[in-house]
């Protein structure tokens, strides 16, 4: 299980679960921690959460599959969430998406050939003043232009390559 979570984090969660009145409340935290470590939550991640918190695997899966920011399928190293809600849409989110799809050579829901990017839509990011916007990892970018997008992608590629 160690590839899912570093030992110290695992111990921390176990300790928290032990003294919590309702260990179940840690499900989302633990899922997020596993995702941070692995990029997504594989099946044995669900089992690990169930095990650490003393709940049933179905109970974890019921929660995990509800949230759109928990990935239960493998994703690229970076997930690009393109906002398609009204403010971004009114400011050209469809063009942003087109540009990203062309540049990365993938459709929504797919992962680029190099395994670096997965492209997903998202609802409003709370960046309505900076529309159109996207979120990669936990960082929000906006307002986007084709140039800005290329620049962001390049930065991330460099970071990942180096």
């Amino acid at each position: 299980m160690s590839e899912l979570l570093p030992q110290n984090q695992l111990d921390e969660f176990k300790a928290k679960a032990n003294c919590a009145d309702h260990p179940q409340e840690l499900i989302v935290d633990l899922l997020r921690a596993i995702q941070t470590e692995c990029g997504w939550v594989p099946d044995h991640g669900i089992d690990l959460v169930a095990d650490v918190l003393g709940v049933l695997p179905v109970e974890v899966e019921e929660v995990a599959t509800f949230y759109d920011k928990i990935y239960r399928y493998p994703v690229g190293k970076r997930v690009i969430h393109v906002c398609d809600s009204v403010c971004c849409w009114a400011n050209g989110s469809e063009d942003v998406l087109d540009h990203l799809q062309k540049t990365l050579g993938i459709n929504l829901g797919q992962t680029s050939a190099d395994g670096l990017f997965t492209l997903l839509p998202t609802c409003c990011l709370g960046a309505c003043g900076e529309a159109p916007a996207m979120m990669i990892g936990l960082t929000t970018y906006g307002p986007l232009t084709p140039e800005r997008i290329d620049q962001v992608l390049a930065e991330i590629r460099e970071e990942a390559g180096g």
Binding site: H22, Q24, E25, L26, I27, V28, D29, L31, R32, L53, V55, E62, V63, F66, Y67, D68, K69, I70, T122, C123, C124
Partner: peptide, 25 residues
């Protein structure tokens, strides 16, 4: 502090409470 994992419905206060409890929101 509780960090969520997406979904607008969690803003609805009772769904939010389920979310905090680690149940289906």
């Amino acid at each position: 502090v509780h960090r969520s994992a997406g979904r607008y419905i969690l803003g609805e206060e009772t769904a939010l409470l389920n979310g905090l409890e680690g149940k289906r929101p």
